[in-house]
């Protein structure tokens, strides 16, 4: 009897702990909306407003007044989609070569690719800024897209995935049918590794969407800002007008949150797979 009671107690503790963790995780999103739908003066007092108010629309208008919201939203979408598509294509192409084609120095080159992941991006920040200046790409979306078009992690990820998901027999069968290596890649490898592509795609999209330091350095004019840089501008312009700042933050967070909720299953299972590998 005593033991049963103890078990019940530990179950209750567990549920309380999990519930508190979940609440703490979700609360800042709620708070964004609470502050964003009230006026700053309603927030700046004790006790502050703790339920959503009625000022969301007028706050949004004030935000749209200071930043070209639709333009920066489009910039973020455009950059993220182009980078994602290009990463998926080039990384799986390289991953295919590293796992299924025989060429001299293959394994050494692959180790080199992995080693490049150790280099922190800060190290190349200044020269890359100079390169972009010389190319005339400052304030051009290309400056963010081109360097991100293929990356070491993606090559590594796709190589591991293709190694385990595509048997040699399939490749051989394609060769007997007279397919070129590129045809084999397009018609045999790509369809077989869709789940791996989905995971890499979601991660790349999120990372590009949320990127901050590099876009901040090369995208200076407000017409080429991404959402993240625009939020920073908003923070500078409105300074302590928290309601307007968090209205913008909420508007900028909503799209990515929706994407996450739609793809959450693939997202979390993809992450899990990656960790095990």
């Amino acid at each position: 009897m005593n033991q049963v009671g103890e078990k019940k107690l530990s179950k209750i503790i567990l549920y309380v702990f999990m519930l508190v963790s979940a609440l703490l995780s979700v609360f800042p999103f709620y708070w964004m909306f609470v502050v964003g739908s009230n006026t700053t003066s309603a927030i700046n007092k004790f006790p502050p407003a703790i339920i959503p108010g009625s000022n969301f629309i007028s706050n949004s208008m004030a935000v749209f007044d200071k930043i070209p919201f639709l333009q920066v939203l489009w910039n973020s979408i455009f950059i993220s989609i182009v980078v994602t598509v290009s990463v998926l294509f080039f990384c799986s192409l390289a991953g295919f070569a590293f796992s299924k084609l025989n060429f001299k120095g293959r394994d050494g080159l692959f180790i080199f690719v992995i080693a490049t992941m150790m280099i922190p991006p800060q190290l190349s920040l200044i020269p890359n800024f100079m390169i972009m200046t010389n190319l005339g790409w400052i304030d051009d979306l290309k400056a963010v897209i081109v360097p991100a078009a293929v990356n070491a992690f993606g090559v590594f990820w796709m190589r591991q995935y293709i190694s385990s998901a595509v048997p040699y027999e399939l490749i051989e069968a394609g060769r007997i049918d007279g397919c070129s290596n590129f045809r084999i890649f397009l018609n045999i490898v790509i369809p077989a590794v869709r789940p791996g592509l989905a995971t890499l795609g979601i991660f790349t999209f999120m990372a590009t969407w949320n990127d901050f330091l590099w876009p901040l350095v090369v995208l200076k004019d407000s017409s080429v800002h991404t959402l993240q840089i625009a939020l920073r501008t908003l923070n500078d312009v409105y300074n302590t007008d928290y309601s307007l700042i968090l209205t913008g933050t909420f508007l900028a967070t909503l799209p990515i949150l929706l994407v996450f909720i739609i793809f959450s299953r693939q997202f979390i299972s993809g992450l899990t797979e990656g960790a095990i590998k």
Binding site: S21, A22, S25, V26, P28, F29, W31, M32, V35, I43, N44, K45, F46, P48, M206, W209, N210, F212, L227, Q228, L231, R232, N235, Y242, I245, L246, T249, A252, T253, I256, L257, V259, F260, I261, S264, F267, I268
Partner: peptide
Amino acid sequence: LSIFMPNVTSVVAVALVFSVIFGSQY
């Protein structure tokens, strides 16, 4: 789902909302 949600939020958004939560006055 709820515990993982913060991770997809941008650093900028996180920094801004927490700057308000950790406001020095109110």
